Every structure is written in structure tokens, then in C-alpha cells.
Simulated scan of single mutants.
Amino acid sequence: MDDELRNELLDAVHGKGAFRHFKDTIRYRGIEDAWQRFRDAALAAIARSWLERNEIAYTEA
């Protein structure tokens, strides 16, 4: 990720309406699909970690 994009995204997540600004920015920059893939992978990792810490068996879908 380039510095310009990084700074633009950081600016988008501050202040009132941050979620909307972030979504608008990723759409404008054409990285919405990449963001969704990153988000999905991050959430899956969090879920796996929690399941493992609590010794709960799971299968990958």
C-alpha cells in the first residue's frame, strides 16, 4: 500500500461519519473487494484463535 493511500484511509477513519468516509474511500480508490477479502480473512483468524484458546473443535468451510 502506498503512503498516499495509507494516509487517505487513516484520515477517513477519524471523526464523525468515519465508517461512511472509510467506505466511500475504498470504493473511490477501487479497493473494496480487496478490503472485503482482508476483512474476511482477519475475522476468520480471530474466530479460529478464540476457538483454539477455548479448546473448541472446528472445521474450515
Rank of each mutant, 00 (worst) to 15 (best):
Y28A: 10
A57Y: 05
E4G: 14
D11N: 14
D24S: 08
A61Y: 00
T25S: 06
S49I: 02
W35R: 10
F22T: 01
A45T: 05
A42C: 02
E52M: 08
G15Y: 01
A47K: 05
E55L: 03
F22C: 01
A44G: 06
R6V: 12
H21E: 14
Y28M: 10
A47H: 03
A44L: 13
A12Q: 00
D11V: 11
A57P: 04
E8G: 05
L10E: 15
R20Q: 12
R27A: 07
A18Q: 09
D40S: 14
D2I: 04
L10R: 15
D2E: 11
A45N: 06
I56C: 00
G30D: 06
H21N: 15
A44P: 03
K23M: 12
R53P: 01
L43C: 13
E55I: 02
F38M: 15
G17W: 01
A42P: 00
E52K: 04
L5N: 11
T25K: 03
R37Y: 06
D11M: 13
G15L: 02
R48K: 09
I26G: 00
L5M: 07
E52N: 03
D11L: 11
R53K: 11
A12E: 00
A34V: 10
D3K: 14
R29H: 09
R29Q: 09
G17I: 03
K16P: 09
F19I: 07
K23Y: 06
A41T: 13
R6T: 14
R27Y: 04
N7R: 12
F22D: 00
E60S: 03
G30N: 09
D11S: 14
E32Y: 08
G15A: 04
I46Q: 06
